[in-house]
């Protein structure tokens, strides 16, 4: 047991060092790599703090998806970092290009502000009691009535279902926002940045069934153990993105209506539950009928998994592909005009 504090201190030092380096490092590529390792260290911390649900999600999202998105954007924003041949300075993408670079005063003020903030936060945390129950007692007390055996799933899909519903709305909104800035209505016919590779497609062909199996397994597991709709959805999203990368057709080849319906399925399933329970004369809003709770939760979770998977995959595919053909055409046009 005496090893635990040493592990803790090592882990915390690693977390702080990695985040310090990734913010300070001048090379953005390295920063993105460090960001992925930051996500991995965080998921180690989740495991250490007995939060396996979060560890699963973090490893898939924080390290996996966010990392892929960052790299894809990096490639588009800074195509050739630091080695531009034709004299044009690589344009770093800045919020306010007119403003001058921050001077020393800016840094001093920022340091004072942040030191104050850190002091305040540390004092606040120091005053917190070592042991406290929070809502753990209540949750375990009502767990039997919730329809599932895993407390986190019970909180997400029963006690605080409203939050989960809204969270699916946030996910949907992010995709709608991205689509609003594109010239297309969906990820249909977005082609991969690179031509599919035989080895990759062989690998993905082999892996995809396992990943689908893992999706279903995680979904089913959520009932009584760490796992559930979100983790399963992320694995599904990863599968779909891999399939797209291997040129094997995924969200980009889905018929528009099927795609649209799977986007909104999770959000609308909860909407339907809310509608029915609000309309029914003697029902409580967003409450499951007692005997149906387990079945309904499983149903909602499965539908939510599909939605999360398809939304995240579409988001990732759109970001990974950059502007798709539109970008290619635009770039060619620009080149042509510059040549003249």
């Amino acid at each position: 047991m005496s090893l635990a504090p040493i592990f803790d201190i090592l882990l915390i030092t690693a977390l702080l060092l990695v985040s310090w380096r990734l913010l300070g490092n001048s090379d953005l590529f390295q920063a993105a790599v460090l960001f992925i390792s930051f996500g991995l260290f965080l998921s180690l911390a989740w495991v250490r703090l007995q939060a396996p649900d979060i560890a699963l999600a973090e490893a898939a999202v924080g390290a996996g998806l966010t990392g892929a998105l960052l790299f894809a954007t990096l490639k588009i924003v800074e195509p050739k970092q630091g080695r531009s041949k034709n004299g044009a300075q690589p344009k770093s993408c800045r919020l306010d290009r007119a403003a001058e670079c921050p001077g020393r005063m800016h840094y001093i003020l920022a340091s004072i502000f942040v030191l104050g903030l850190a002091g305040l936060l540390l004092t606040a945390v120091f005053s917190l009691p070592d042991t406290a129950n929070g809502l753990a007692g209540l949750t375990s007390g009502f767990l039997a009535q919730s329809g599932v055996e895993h407390p986190v799933t019970a909180v997400l899909l029963n006690f605080r279902l409203y939050d989960t519903w809204l969270e699916l709305g946030v996910l949907l909104l992010a995709l709608l926002g991205v689509l609003g800035t594109r010239d297309r209505l969906g990820p249909q016919n977005v082609t991969a940045a690179q031509p599919p590779n035989p080895v990759l497609s062989w690998l993905v062909r082999g892996l995809a069934p396992f990943m689908l199996l893992a999706t279903v397994y995680l979904l089913w597991l959520g009932d009584h153990a760490p796992g559930g709709a979100f983790q399963a959805g992320v694995v599904l999203a990863a599968t779909l993105v891999l399939l797209w990368l291997a040129g094997l057709g995924s969200v980009v080849r889905m018929p528009r209506h099927a795609w649209l319906f799977s986007l909104v399925a999770g959000f609308s399933a909860m909407l339907v539950l809310a509608l029915c329970t609000t309309l029914a004369p003697d029902a409580v809003a967003l409450a499951y009928p007692q005997s149906w709770a387990k079945a309904l939760i499983l149903l909602l979770e499965s539908v939510a998994t599909i939605s999360i998977g398809v939304i995240l995959a579409s988001l990732t595919v759109l970001v990974l592909a950059g502007e798709g053909e539109a970008n290619g055409a635009g770039a060619a046009e620009t080149d042509g005009k510059n040549g003249m």
Partner: peptide
């Protein structure tokens, strides 16, 4: 699975 993945990825990187 890890073997299959790392071999393929190694190949892709090399290529």
């Amino acid at each position: 699975l890890a073997l299959a993945a790392s071999t393929s990825i190694c190949f892709l990187l090399g290529q």
